[in-house]
Simulated assay, not measured.
Amino acid sequence: MVTFQFERTAPLPLDEAWRRLTEWTRHGDVVPLTRVTVVTPGPTREGTVFVARSGIGPFAFDDRMEVTVWCPPDDDGGPGLCRLEKRGRTVRGWAEIEVRPGPGGRTRVIWREELRPRLVPSLFDPLVRPVARTVFGRAANRLLRRP
C-alpha cells in the first residue's frame, strides 16, 4: 500500500480549479497512455463511476473509481472536497482532491491518495510512492494549466 500527498497553488478561482480537476475525461488527456470514460450519466455527484484504462494493448488495465464524497466549493469561497474509491481489479485504494482559498486570491489544491496495486509487492512501495507522486503531480499541474 502506497500513500502520498502533494499540494499545489494555482492562480485560479476555487470554482475553476475544482472544475478543471474534476472533469474526469480530461485526466485521460494529461496522464500518459490513459483514457477515461465516465460510466454514469452526469453531472458528477456521489455515486458517479468512471474508468481510467491505462496501458497498451494486452498490457492495459482498468482503474474503476466511484465518487463517494462530492462537496463542491460554495459561492462564499468555502472549500471543496471530492473523494474517489478505487475499485478496480488491479488497483484499489482512494483519492481525495481538496480545493481551498490560498494566498492572494489563489487556490490551494491538496491531493491525497492511497494506492494498493494488486500485482506489486509492498517491497516496491518505496519505489512506487515517488513515481506515483510525480505522475499524479504532473497530471494535476497540467489540469490546472489547461482551461
Rank of each mutant, 00 (worst) to 15 (best):
P117C: 09
E66G: 02
W24Q: 09
E66N: 07
L14S: 00
G47P: 09
V69P: 10
V91Y: 05
A60P: 06
R116T: 01
P130E: 04
G77K: 01
M65L: 05
E23L: 14
R64F: 04
R8S: 03
D29R: 14
P130A: 08
P101M: 05
L144Y: 08
T3H: 04
R64N: 01
L21H: 05
I56N: 00
E114L: 04
S54D: 04
G55P: 05
R116N: 12
L115V: 03
R8E: 08
G78E: 08
G102T: 09
V120P: 15
V67H: 07
E113L: 07
R106S: 14
L143V: 03
E16V: 03
L119R: 14
A10Y: 08
T44V: 11
I110Y: 00
Q5E: 15
T3F: 00
G105D: 14
T3P: 08
P32E: 13
T134P: 03
C71L: 13
V120S: 14
V128E: 03
V131A: 13
V120C: 15
R106F: 04
M1Y: 13
C82I: 12
P11L: 10
V31R: 14
T44G: 10
G88F: 01
A17G: 00
T68M: 14
V36D: 11
A10R: 03
V69K: 11
D75K: 07
L123I: 14
R8T: 01
V39T: 12
A95R: 08
R19H: 07
R129F: 07
R19K: 08
A132T: 10
A60K: 08
E23K: 04
S54F: 01
T90S: 06
E85C: 04
T48I: 00
L143K: 01
T40W: 11
I110G: 06
E23W: 15
V2A: 14
P11K: 05
S122E: 13
R112G: 01
R8V: 02
V38D: 02
E114N: 00
D74F: 05
R20Y: 01
V30P: 12
F4A: 02
R129Y: 08
D125P: 04
T25S: 12
D125F: 07
